[in-house]
Amino acid sequence: MIRRYGERVDPAMRYTPRPGAYVILQRGADVLLTVQDGDAPELQLPGGGIDAGEHTLPALHREVMEETGWRMDKPRRLGVFKRFVFMPEYDLWAEKICTVYWSQPTLRMGPPTEEGHHAIWVPMVEAPALLTNEGDAAFVASLL
């Protein structure tokens, strides 16, 4: 059984499955998070949706580069959770199936390439309270 976080499921709503990969990038006592700008900025684990025909790990490496500007070592899978959310950028009600990994950053290539994102280092012990998404927060807390 996959743990569910976030909004309650509306039985009248049709949700589209949206697999994604996310990573806890740890350097010493700190973790690298991404801030997604918008009306209500969100602090998140780097990562995102896996495109059609794309494999999970290449998608994760792509998303981390786009959202943080960093490369990372070989990610280790920690687990999976689900979220049922509205994604306004896609005008889509989604069943997000979030696979979470742990890794270490290896090289900063430059600033994030995805518009509306910037990366910040925060103390890992503070990250669960700062993360916008309960699932992200639970996985970081599980490593403390």
Rank of each mutant, 00 (worst) to 15 (best):
P112D: 10
E134T: 01
M13R: 15
L107W: 09
L43W: 03
H61I: 13
V85D: 14
M13K: 14
M72W: 00
T34C: 11
L143S: 13
T68L: 08
D51V: 01
R8L: 15
P19I: 11
A21C: 06
L144P: 05
E67K: 15
A119N: 04
G6S: 02
L143V: 06
D10K: 10
F81D: 12
G110Y: 02
V125L: 04
P17F: 14
V140G: 04
K82E: 02
L144W: 15
L45K: 05
L43N: 04
P88I: 05
P88Q: 06
R77N: 06
V140L: 02
T56D: 07
V31W: 08
A40I: 02
L143F: 09
D37K: 04
T68F: 05
L78Q: 06
Y5C: 06
V80E: 05
W70C: 03
K74A: 08
F81M: 12
H61F: 08
P105M: 09
E54L: 08
V122A: 10
E115M: 02
T56L: 13
R3C: 01
Q44D: 12
E63I: 03
C98Q: 12
T34V: 02
A119M: 05
M124R: 01
L144T: 09
M65N: 04
L131P: 15
I24D: 15
A29C: 08
V100N: 09
V125K: 10
R77A: 10
L32G: 14
V23N: 05
M72C: 11
E95R: 13
E114F: 14
T68Y: 11
K82P: 00
Y15M: 02
E95C: 07
L130R: 11
E89H: 15
P111A: 06
P41M: 11
T132C: 05
W121G: 01
R76P: 00
W121C: 03
A52G: 08
R83C: 07
A29K: 15
L33R: 11
